[in-house]
Design a protein around this nucleic acid. Sequence first.
DNA 1: CGGGAAGTTGACGGGTCTCAATGGCCGTGG
DNA 2: CCACGGCCATTGAGACCCGTCAACTTCCCG
Lengths: 249, 249
Amino acid sequence: MGSPMEGSIVPCRECPLRSLRTFAPVSDRELAFIQTFKQQELDVRAGGAIIPEAGRSGQLYTVLFGMAFRYQTLSDGRRQILNFLFPGDLVGLQEQVTVESPHGVEALTEAKLCVFPMEKLWDLYRQFPQLGYDITWLTAHEEYVVDGNLLTVGRRSASERVAMLLIHIVKRAEAIGWNVDGTVPFPMTQQHIADALGLSLVHTNKTLRRLEKLGLHKLENNRLRLLKPTVLKRMADYYAVPLRPRPLI
Amino acid sequence: MGSPMEGSIVPCRECPLRSLRTFAPVSDRELAFIQTFKQQELDVRAGGAIIPEAGRSGQLYTVLFGMAFRYQTLSDGRRQILNFLFPGDLVGLQEQVTVESPHGVEALTEAKLCVFPMEKLWDLYRQFPQLGYDITWLTAHEEYVVDGNLLTVGRRSASERVAMLLIHIVKRAEAIGWNVDGTVPFPMTQQHIADALGLSLVHTNKTLRRLEKLGLHKLENNRLRLLKPTVLKRMADYYAVPLRPRPLI
DNA sequence: CGGGAAGTTGACGGGTCTCAATGGCCGTGG
DNA sequence: CCACGGCCATTGAGACCCGTCAACTTCCCG
C-alpha cells in the first residue's frame, strides 16, 4: 500500500493516482489550481483519527494512500461504519452542512491525505466550475455507496452482507490497481466488518468462517482472494453498475 | 399539504417555499436564473413513480409540495427505503454518477416537482458558482441523512428505530411549517416504515403499538403527534445537530 | 517469555421473522 | 343500497437467525 515519504510533499503533477485509468484527466490549469489548493499533507498511523467525531476540522481531505473509514456512534458505544475510504476519496465536505462534525473518520492503515482549506473552496467554485462540479460528483458518488450499504444492512441476511462486503472491497481495490496476483489488501479486523455490516462480532466471525469453509474466498496475511466470485455475487444479489470516469481532486 | 394548480406553473419568485425561514435567501439574479433553469413541473399521484428504478430520467427534480421517498430493491423484491423527501429536497443528481439509475423515487402523497434539465446544469456551475456550491451542499446534506439512517438500521433496536423515525419526521415537517396544532402529516403506511427501518411489517406494527400504548405518540388520521418527545429522544439516543440555513433550488 | 489484541468456537437466550387469521376502511360495481 | 374485493392494520403462535456470554487459542510485538 506504499509508505509515507517523510519530509517531502507529493506535487500534484506527480500524483501517483492520476496515472490510473480510474481517474478522469484534468487540464493543466486545473491541476495547477489543485496544487495551490493543497495546503499540506496529513500522515496518520493505523487506527489514528483523521476527523474526530466531535469538533470540527474545517478542512477537506483526499486520501492519497492507505485506507480509512467513516463512522458514527451511539452514546453507549455502538458503532456503525458508514463506508470505507480508498485512495482518491474525498472527505470532510459534510462538515459544511452541520455545525458540528457529523461523523468521525479513522485510518485503517497507515495513510497519507492531502489537506485542503475550506476557505479556498469558494475560489475553486468561482474560478473552476468544472472542479466544483467534480466535488458534487464525488459527494453524490459517496452517497451512492452509502445507499448501497443501507440496502445491505437493512435487507440482506448475514451471509449476504458478508458476501457483499467481500465483493465490494475487491471491486474498489481493483479500481486502483491493488489486485496483485488475485489478492487485494484487507486490513479490516472482524470488528470493523461487524460494525460495517450491522452484525455482532461473534456472528460475523461465524459467517466469515462458513463462507471460507465453503471455499468462496480466502483470507490470509491481511489479503483477500475471491475463489468463487460468481457464487458470491449470486449470494449477495450483486450486479455491477457501470460508473463514469471518476474525478480526482 | 396543498393541492396542484392545474394548468399554471408556479413562478420561482412566487415559490411558496422561499418565504419559509428554513431556506436561505438568494439574489435576484440567481432567482432569475433558477426560473430559466426550471423546465417544467411534474405532477404525480400518491404511489406514482418519479424516477423508475431502471432507466434514466436525465433530469433533476426539486419537491415543490407533497412527500416522496428514494428506495432500492433486491431482485427478490426486498425493498429498502433510503430516505424520505420533503419540499425543498433535490433528487436526481446521483444519476450523473452511474450509467443506470441507482435508485427509484416514488411519491408518497400527491406531489408536484420542479423539473430541471441536466444539460443546463453546466451553465449553472459556470455562471452561478454559488448555486453550484448549493447543489453540493444539498447532496452532502442528503448523504448526511442517509448516514443517519444507516446508523439507525445497523445499530438501533426496533423500538429505538421507530422512535428515531417518529422524531425525524416531526423535525423535518416542522422545518417547513407542517406542524399544525401539534400534529404533522404522516402519509406512510406501516409497510413504508418497515422498509425504511429494515424491519418486517409485523414487527413494525407491534413496535408502533407498544410505543403508542406507552403514550409516547399518537397516530390518527394520517397525522402524527409526539406526546412524550423527551422520552422518545432518550430512547432513540437522539440529539439535535444544528444545521446551517438550507439552500433551495 | 509475557501480555494484549484478534480470532475461534460452543451454549444459550431473545429479538425479530414468518405464517396465519381477523377486522376495518373504502372504492367499485351490481 | 348493499355486496364484494383489496389494501391496511392488528394480533397470536412458533421458528430461527442472530446476539450475548464465556472460554480458549492464535498471533503479534515488546
